[in-house]
């Protein structure tokens, strides 16, 4: 609350407008929220997906900003820990299940032949990181033994995994992936030892490994794009901790020259005033906007190019925020999903 008061007057109220709220009454803890395009009876709509530890629900929009639950998939054996959005894909929800690490990746879908909801197993093992790619593909990194495996699988409309191929793995463990926007075959990843790697997904080649630098600790890549011969990467620092040289970093926009493997910081987004010190950030990036839940239960929004916080959403009367994700666009406006542990999800227009 103190931090919100330190923002320019009216910023909080003007930046995020509550549009609607939905409440999942699942008995277990809410773990993730996302959006998916879903087509039924010839009508294609942007739907919301909510995940609890033991179930995943699909919600379709109704008039007057209300939501109706379409279906709930039950997943009793292993807890759900993450939704893996599949860009440009309709009628498919991809989820990760596990304890501390991903043990399974499953697809949730509605079978077009029988019109029945079902699920199918895509991968199992000790998976460190996974990302849904454009063109109905999924990349994941795992370490079944000493050697790391980075694998891309194509998914069919019926949920089966089709041909898969491997990418040349770096020695360091890959902890996050991001597609390079505008370049279909370029993929980047960040590693546990502060490196950024670039692959050619088509050929499986590892093109470059570049050190991010210790000024940018434990980076998780969220978004990458190429512009004027440079590779720009938005990274977050989940374990944000105040340091003398960099303050309290939350997100950085970094620029790399892949030709020379040199890089530098372009803009830095720090924790808002009143939220310094050790933090755990759970964040998401869309375009130039970043959002994260701070340890205090407040959601903060940053403009990565400006490098400062533009909105704060303090905990409400019902409690702290636990999750936040940017929604896929259904219009020109940007929508932020904000979830609480009890399954309440609020949609805010930014």
């Amino acid at each position: 609350h103190q931090a919100a008061e330190q923002l320019p007057a009216g910023l909080r109220e003007e930046s995020l407008q509550l549009v609607s709220e939905l409440k999942d009454s699942c008995s277990s803890c809410a773990v993730d929220v996302s959006t998916v395009w879903w087509e039924a009876a010839g009508c294609r709509e942007l739907c919301v997906v909510t995940a609890c530890e033991s179930s995943v629900s699909l919600w379709k929009p109704l008039p007057s900003d209300c939501w109706s639950k379409v279906h709930t998939w039950q997943l009793a054996e292993i807890p759900v820990i993450q939704i893996l959005p599949l860009p440009d894909t309709c009628n498919l929800v991809c989820i990760a299940l596990g304890e501390l690490e991903i043990a399974e990746i499953r697809l949730l879908l509605c079978s077009p032949e029988t019109d029945s909801f079902r699920q199918s197993l895509v991968r199992s093992g000790t998976i460190k990181a996974a990302l849904g790619l454009r063109g109905r593909r999924l990349v994941s990194s795992s370490r079944p033994g000493q050697e790391q495996q980075v694998e891309v699988v194509s998914l069919s409309e019926t949920g089966r995994s089709k041909d898969g191929h491997t990418l040349l793995p770096p020695e360091e463990t890959v902890v996050a992936f991001a597609e390079v926007e505008g370049m279909r075959d370029a993929l980047v990843g960040t590693t546990a030892l502060n490196s950024l790697v670039i692959w050619n997904v088509q050929t499986g080649q590892l093109l470059r490994k570049m050190h991010v630098g210790y000024s940018y600790p434990a980076p998780i890549c969220h978004r990458a794009y190429s512009d004027s011969g440079l590779l720009f990467v938005a990274v977050s620092h989940p374990h944000g901790e105040e340091s003398e040289c960099s303050g309290s970093p939350a997100f950085h926009l970094l620029a790399f020259n892949p030709s020379t493997a040199r890089g530098k910081g372009v803009a830095s987004s720090s924790l808002p005033a009143g939220h310094t010190g050790r933090q755990y950030l759970e964040g998401d990036v869309k375009d130039t906007l970043a959002a994260a839940v701070l340890s205090s239960g407040t959601i903060a929004v940053w403009d990565l190019l400006l490098g400062h916080c533009t909105a704060l959403l303090p905990p409400g009367p019902a409690g702290s925020w636990a999750l936040t994700r940017w929604a896929s666009s259904s219009s020109t406006s940007t929508c932020l999903l904000a979830g609480q542990r009890d399954g309440t999800v609020c949609l805010y227009r930014y």
Binding site: N200, T203, L206, L230, N257, P258, S259, T260, K264
Partner: peptide, 23 residues
């Protein structure tokens, strides 16, 4: 960001690195 910071920039970096990297 400029070439003085990051070295010579190539617009075709992806194709060039793909041609150089081991298969």
């Amino acid at each position: 960001c400029s070439e003085s910071d990051l070295g010579p920039i190539s617009l075709n970096w992806f194709e060039e690195l793909s041609a150089e990297a081991p298969p």
